[in-house]
């Protein structure tokens, strides 16, 4: 089973997690491996959103994987945003000052809006 679920909302590649507890090493390693192809997934529009709405617990080693992804996005000029982080995890993010390093939004709507105008959006207008 994949650890990540990848969908597209307008021109944003939205990544959500299949595990609610990201604690064991094997899961974190798998997520890290699946992270490594995300900038390719988002190569067209360079908009990538990590949606944490499914994740209730997360080990600190997972933060390392997010940082690696953040570096890769910077290198490939992909706009990375995070959203829907539960209070437990947000407290850790705040303590580690990740809130100063990453673009974090309360929910997917806010994050998607922050990506700015959608090139394909006229398709959906009725």
């Amino acid at each position: 089973m994949n650890a990540l679920e990848i969908t597209e909302v307008n021109d944003v590649v939205v990544v959500s997690f299949n595990h609610s507890k990201v604690l064991d090493e094997a899961t974190i390693r798998q997520i890290g491996e699946e992270f490594s192809t995300l900038t390719l997934e988002a190569a067209a529009e360079r908009k990538l959103l990590l949606n944490f709405s499914n994740v209730a617990f997360m080990a600190s080693a997972m933060i390392g994987k997010i940082l690696v992804l953040n570096k890769q996005c910077k290198k490939d000029r992909v706009d990375l945003k995070l959203c829907s982080i539960c209070p437990n995890i947000m407290e850790v993010f705040n303590l580690m000052k990740l809130n100063k390093v990453l673009k974090i939004y309360d929910n997917a709507e806010q994050a998607l809006e922050a990506f700015g105008p959608t090139r394909k959006s006229w398709f959906h207008r009725s």
Binding site: I63, G64, L67, N70, K71, M96, K97, L98, K100, V101
Partner: peptide
């Protein structure tokens, strides 16, 4: 408290 992030991350 401080504003700096974790060490080695970036």
């Amino acid at each position: 408290d401080s504003d700096g992030p974790m060490i080695g991350g970036m």
